[in-house]
Amino acid sequence: MKTKDVPQDESILEGNRRACYAEDENGRYVIVPSKGWEVEKIVNAQAQAAIRHAVEEARQLVLEGKASPLKYHMAQYQMTVGLLAATTGLWRWQVLRHLRPNIFARLKQETLKRYAEAFGIDVETLCKVPRQIQTNNPNQAQ
């Protein structure tokens, strides 16, 4: 790839540039900063859409009373049961149980704090889900 062919498309980098290697006029491969590439934008959007879909699905389940808010936050923070268990120091089966709304409602403040800490949010936020569809991922909400 020649340096002039390094894509400079508006992409997911939010004004940052990534280092690409390309051939300069002397035939040497050098670093060329790139604003982004449409290709990476397309495949990134695909991955983000999958996350958003999971988040929305979880949010609906919580609102219908079929799952605890934990399910929603897990999707938001791209965590599996295993990862959340490891992060909180609880057992997997405990996390699985806490996904049930009636059991989640009876949790001690202490346990709620552990979950909140794992997501980096406060207990109040942990115990609810937004009424509106959220289009962003949690990092921005922080």
Partner: peptide
């Protein structure tokens, strides 16, 4: 990190 690049 850019928001859309923050994966686990």
């Amino acid at each position: 990190f850019p928001r859309d690049m923050r994966f686990q």
